[in-house]
């Protein structure tokens, strides 16, 4: 962690100085600012805010939206909702796993993509659904995946 990072963390901490039980809010902000909540961040926050490290650690391990290591450049979220499941979502997962060579929760070696599975993206009307960073793709077909990956992989 360099001075810039520490400055960012200080800012986050000071913005929640007056909030009641701010641990969760702080960590969420760290997550959005850094893309993950690393060991360094947790230790630093704990020291500065007097929130026990065990509590912070308890939170980040309980809620799956926290990441303990830096993600790839693009984050792919595959919806595993019921509608996606009955409309062939599992095949999409398999195809993505095949093309990227990683499973959900993993990051490619070149750190370009992280694959994550989520419970439901709430777009059941246009299932199966895949979300690339903040862009949602509906009615995804296995044939379309390579194309989608290419637009996000930057090649």
């Amino acid at each position: 962690m360099d001075a810039k990072d520490r400055k960012m963390l200080d800012d986050i901490l000071s913005s929640h100085r007056d909030t009641r039980d701010p641990a969760m809010l702080i960590l969420q902000k760290v997550q959005t600012s850094f893309g993950y909540t690393g060991q360094d961040h947790l230790t630093y926050i704990s020291e500065k805010s007097c929130i026990p490290l065990s509590k912070l650690y308890g939170i980040v391990t309980f809620y799956p939206s926290f990441r303990l290591s830096p993600p790839g450049k693009s984050i792919i979220r595959i919806c595993e909702g019921t509608s996606c499941h009955v409309r062939g979502g599992a095949r999409i997962v398999k195809e993505l796993e095949r093309q990227l060579g990683i499973g959900p929760g993993q990051t490619t070696k070149d750190r370009k993509f992280s694959l994550e599975s989520v419970r439901c993206l709430g777009c059941c009307g246009i299932s199966p659904v895949v979300m690339m960073d903040d862009k949602t793709y509906g009615r995804v077909k296995a044939t379309k995946l390579a194309e989608i990956l290419a637009t996000h992989g930057g090649e």
Partner: peptide, 10 residues
């Protein structure tokens, strides 16, 4: 809204 398959709240 956590139920997979429901998105009225959204």
């Amino acid at each position: 809204e956590g139920d997979p398959g429901a998105y009225m709240d959204r």
